[in-house]
Computed example of a mutant assay.
Amino acid sequence: MDVTQHNSNGWDKKVEEGATYTKSVSEEIMKKSQSGEWEITVTTNKPVPRNWFPKSLSGLKVLCLASGGGQQGPVLAAAGADVTVTDISKKQLGQDEFVAKRDGLNLKTVQGDMSDLSDFIDEYFDIIVNPVSNLFVKDVLPVWKEAARVLKNNGVLISGFTNPLLFIFDDNQERKGILDVKHTIPSSSIDYLPKDEVQDYINSNQTIEFAHTLEDQIQGQIDAGFVISGFYEDDFGGTRILDKYIKTFIATKAIKVKID
C-alpha cells in the first residue's frame, strides 16, 4: 500500500474532524507574534526556547517541514521569516493558507512528502522546523538526509519526535490505566493488530504510525551531517498515565556542519 497517500487521506480526515493538531492559531496569537511576542511548539506543550532561534527572523528562509495545520508556519511568518510550509495533507496546508489570508501574511505552501524534498534546491533554507510528524513515515533516515541537503551550511534543524517507549504499551490497556508492555521497536500501528482487523483499520482512514528507534532519530541526524546542540523532553500535560513515569516526546536542535 502507499503509506504516504494513506496518511495524507488520514490527515485530511483529521482536519474535517477538527483534531487538535489541525486547529490553526487564533488572531490573538498572531497579533502577539507580529509584535514580537511569539513562540511555537514542536512537541505537545513546551515551547521551543527562543534562544534556539536567531534574535531576528527577518528575511530568513524557514521551511516548516510536515508542519501543516496553521500553527508554526503563520507564527514564524508573522515574526518576519520567509516561510514555506510543506505537508502531505492538502487540507492541513489549507489551514495555513486560511491564516495567511486572514492575517495578511506572505506564506507559501507546498504539498509533499517529508522524505522527498525534491521540490527544493540544495542549501536554500536557513532554518527547518519539524514538529512531531516523522512517526508517519516508515523510514526516518531519508527525512534527516533531505533536511541536511536543503539547509545552508550552519543552518538549524529544530525537530520534535516521539520517544519509542510510547509505543511499547498496549493502547487499550493504557486507556484503562494499565501499562502492559506488548510491542517491539521498531514497528507500526498495523503490526499491533490481529490479521483480520488490518483491512478494517486501513479502510477507516486512520493514520498509520511508525515507532522509530532512538538510534535512527538521533544518530540518524548525526549521520546526515548534523551536530546536536539542544535537547529537551515533553509529555501529554498529565492527560495520560505515562506522564507519571516518563516524558514521551523529545525535541532537538541540530546544526548542519559541512566538512570539506
Rank of each mutant, 00 (worst) to 15 (best):
D2S: 04
G10N: 05
D12A: 09
K14N: 09
K14F: 08
E16V: 13
A19F: 05
T22C: 11
K23S: 04
E27V: 15
M30D: 02
K32I: 10
Q34T: 12
Q34H: 11
W38H: 05
W38T: 04
T41P: 00
V48L: 07
R50M: 10
F53E: 02
P54E: 10
L57R: 09
A66Q: 00
G68R: 01
G70C: 10
Q71R: 14
Q72I: 11
Q72L: 10
V75F: 03
A81D: 09
A81R: 01
T86G: 04
T86I: 01
D87T: 01
S89D: 03
K90A: 11
Q92Y: 07
Q92S: 11
E97W: 08
A100L: 07
R102C: 02
N106M: 10
D113C: 01
M114C: 10
D116Y: 05
L117Q: 06
D119L: 08
F120M: 13
F120L: 06
D122E: 15
E123H: 13
Y124V: 12
D126M: 13
D126A: 07
P131F: 07
N134L: 09
L135P: 00
F136N: 10
V140W: 05
P142W: 00
P142H: 07
R149D: 14
R149H: 13
N154K: 15
S159K: 04
S159F: 05
L165Y: 08
N172T: 14
N172V: 14
E174M: 15
V181I: 15
T184H: 11
I185T: 00
S188L: 02
S188I: 01
D191V: 03
L193S: 06
D200Y: 11
Q206N: 12
I208W: 01
F210H: 01
F210P: 00
H212K: 00
T213H: 06
L214A: 05
I218S: 01
G220H: 07
I228Y: 08
I228A: 08
G230P: 14
D235L: 02
G237I: 12
G238A: 13
L242W: 12
D243C: 12
F249I: 01
K258Y: 15
I259W: 12
